[in-house]
Design a protein around this nucleic acid. Structure first.
Length: 261
RNA sequence: GGCCCGAUAGCUCAGUCGGUAGAGCAGUGGAUUGAAAAUUCACGUGUCGGCGGUUCAAAUCCGUCUCGGGCCA
């Protein structure tokens, strides 16, 4: 399979700190992946904010361009949500509104829950009401669209129901021991490979970029708040947790084939 | 050598007046269509360092040993 794919990698990450040291979490073969061109153009600057639609807008021209050269774009995760936007498209929902969001952030969660339950009881019942983000997003959809979030969601789910059967993809699953060893190796490579300099040189970054794993930890290291060993361990732990969340997400995507021969 | 402090979950520690122990982190599983490398939910049996003693009952009190750390010599 590997030798048949003349591929180029498009990564589903909005920000690529540590350029050239991307996670190799899915690839036809490790050698091929390492040799394939990684598409870093179209990537957001650290000061820019990101969202799933923005990622799709950046990735699609890159994918099209690879295809015009007769090559296979290999889309890798990254974020399961971003990949799903790419494969299934965006639902016709209102885009986040900064002012409304700031207003909601200032309100107590119970307040948001109560309003959502009043405006759209069905969506409230489907939402994890302890999760502030999910509650405020659902409420935001209702307020901005003037419609019920549950209706819009149902429409979109009905419309995209058949898409998965037309997709092809694979998931590389590793044993936890192997995965954790590779994560530790990657962290080492990052710290030794210029990540400190890269973070030190970054300006005030966007809230999205600030959350990239390693960013805060390296800032703390540079500020002398933690030592290098602690920094590495914190990055390792955060990456392990992220990898586990990726596994959970992709396990649910039934069209993805785990560990094909 | 003497004295003091510590030893409890993988790690850091809490544990009241004795009633066989629980937080944070780590870990595991889940949710997740415009913040997602984010956010969020669930999951806690472990020789309470060892041995002996007191007691109806000991992580807790007493003795002793081991291992850390500190102070005095």
């Amino acid at each position: 399979m590997a030798e048949k794919l003349d591929g180029e990698i498009v990564n589903a990450d909005a920000f690529q700190l540590y350029r050239g040291l991307e996670i190799v979490s899915a690839a036809p073969s490790e050698e091929e992946f390492a040799q394939a061109p990684h598409h870093l153009y179209g990537v957001l600057e650290a000061t820019e904010s990101a969202d799933a639609q923005r990622y799709v807008n950046l990735a699609q021209p890159v994918i099209a361009e690879i295809q015009t050269r007769g090559k296979t774009p290999i889309i890798t995760g990254g974020s399961g949500l971003y990949l799903k936007f790419l494969t299934h498209g965006a639902a016709p929902l209102p885009t986040a509104d900064a002012a409304l969001r700031a207003e909601m952030d200032a309100r107590p969660l119970e307040d948001l829950v109560a309003e959502l339950q009043r405006l759209d009881p069905l969506e409230a019942a489907r939402t994890a009401l302890q999760n502030r983000r999910f509650v405020s997003r659902a409420l935001e959809i209702c307020l901005l669209s003037g419609r019920k979030a549950s209706d819009l969601r149902d429409q979109w789910e009905a419309k995209t129901a058949g898409i998965s059967s037309q997709l092809r993809g694979l998931v590389i699953q590793r044993s936890r021991a192997d995965l954790h060893a590779r994560i530790a190796q990657r962290t080492r490579a990052m710290l030794d490979g210029g990540a400190l300099e890269e973070v030190a040189a970054l300006p005030d970054v966007s809230a999205n970029c600030e959350k990239a794993i390693g960013f805060r930890e390296i800032r703390a290291l540079l500020a002398g708040e933690i030592g290098r060993a602690t920094c590495a361990e914190l990055i390792n732990a955060a990456t392990r947790q992220y990898a586990k969340r990726q596994e959970t997400w992709f396990r649910r995507e039934k069209w993805l084939v785990p560990n094909p021969a």
